[in-house]
Amino acid sequence: MEDNLAIILNDSNKTNSKLQLLSAFFEEEIIYKIYLRSQVVHKLFETNPELDINKLELFHLQYTASAIELLKKIKASNERNVSLIYDEMQLNKEMMEKLNSSVFSEKNYDLDKQKQSLKINLSLRRLYQTLSDNTDEYPFSKNINTFSSRFSQDFYYDISADQMMNLIQYETADVYRNSYAIIQKKLMGLLCKHEFRTEFFCGLKTGGMIAEVYRFLDVDRHYLFFPSKSLFLLCDLSEIPDIDWTNSLSKKARIIQEMTDKNDQLESRANILKTAIPDTVRTLLQEYYDKISEVDFLQKIGNYDVQTNILRTMLNTDTF
């Protein structure tokens, strides 16, 4: 008899331990309350040997075991769904690694922008000199078009063909030209006035057409360099109203940023989903707790009616 008592009490402790772990996993108040109530029932039988110990075994079989199986079923279902989310996150990470390894970095771009600005400023000084001296000297720095060919695909803003055509239109009477370049007279005047102090601002592209936009350091004015025609014209960026000029990230860098944000959202979703309990189950658990908290609960153990088996019925559905 004592051996049977010890076995049932030992099994009861194991069952309650499982319930405790599940309450810690879900962090749900009602599960913790059920666990505490199960502990109270266990202690009642442990400290009152005159009670029929078989009723403790019946209590766990009829109630606790069903609750545990239900919670384990929900936990397994949640973990399957979370696994799908983690698979998506992993695919995103792999894609980000590929993008990172296949593009020039923002650091490369920022460094080469400075070099390109120096090349353009020097080239424009030479162009001014050749126009002034009426000579036929080639004014452009070496590899001046390398910058755009290197970075346009990833870093330049996309604009429409009409916008590009509007930017590069000019009146013949308004420009200087020689064998190598065409430059707006008003632009050349501004460059001389401000000692050719300009910096690269951004790149524009549409189809196969590419333009580089530069900004004066001492005045809020911009001009563009259209490499395919060696053309330099003042430009008004307000003519391109649909571009966020503050966003200097490359296309692939923006994709990486978006995927990083998406993974953060997926991580939050996974954390919530991992311990989610459907409202119907939460209501069911509350009914279960109310039942085992009734004053005359012990007298009802062993009465297998519809109400006492509601958890077991839930287990036999395909809800999860």
Rank of each mutant, 00 (worst) to 15 (best):
residue 60 H to W: 01
residue 62 Q to P: 08
residue 62 Q to W: 00
residue 64 T to G: 04
residue 64 T to L: 02
residue 68 I to R: 00
residue 70 L to V: 10
residue 71 L to G: 13
residue 73 K to D: 06
residue 78 N to C: 10
residue 79 E to W: 03
residue 80 R to S: 14
residue 80 R to F: 05
residue 81 N to R: 12
residue 84 L to K: 07
residue 84 L to C: 09
residue 84 L to A: 14
residue 85 I to G: 06
residue 86 Y to M: 08
residue 88 E to F: 08
residue 88 E to Y: 07
residue 89 M to S: 15
residue 89 M to V: 12
residue 90 Q to R: 14
residue 92 N to W: 01
residue 93 K to G: 08
residue 94 E to A: 14
residue 95 M to A: 14
residue 97 E to H: 11
residue 99 L to F: 07
residue 99 L to Y: 08
residue 100 N to C: 05
residue 103 V to S: 05
residue 104 F to K: 12
residue 104 F to P: 02
residue 104 F to I: 04
residue 107 K to T: 11
residue 107 K to N: 10
residue 110 D to P: 01
residue 110 D to I: 12
residue 111 L to E: 03
residue 113 K to P: 03
residue 114 Q to V: 15
residue 115 K to Y: 04
residue 115 K to D: 14
residue 117 S to E: 02
residue 118 L to R: 11
residue 120 I to M: 14
residue 121 N to Y: 01
residue 122 L to G: 03
residue 124 L to D: 02
residue 125 R to V: 06
residue 125 R to K: 15
residue 130 T to M: 02
residue 131 L to S: 10
residue 133 D to P: 01
residue 133 D to N: 13
residue 135 T to D: 05
residue 136 D to V: 06
residue 137 E to D: 13
residue 137 E to G: 00
residue 138 Y to D: 06
residue 139 P to W: 00
residue 139 P to K: 02
residue 140 F to G: 10
residue 140 F to C: 09
residue 142 K to S: 06
residue 143 N to L: 05
residue 143 N to V: 01
residue 144 I to K: 04
residue 144 I to P: 06
residue 145 N to V: 09
residue 145 N to P: 03
residue 147 F to E: 05
residue 149 S to G: 13
residue 150 R to I: 09
residue 151 F to I: 10
residue 152 S to Q: 13
residue 153 Q to H: 13
residue 156 Y to M: 08
residue 156 Y to Q: 08
residue 156 Y to K: 07
residue 157 Y to R: 14
residue 159 I to L: 13
residue 160 S to F: 03
residue 160 S to I: 10
residue 162 D to I: 14
residue 163 Q to G: 15
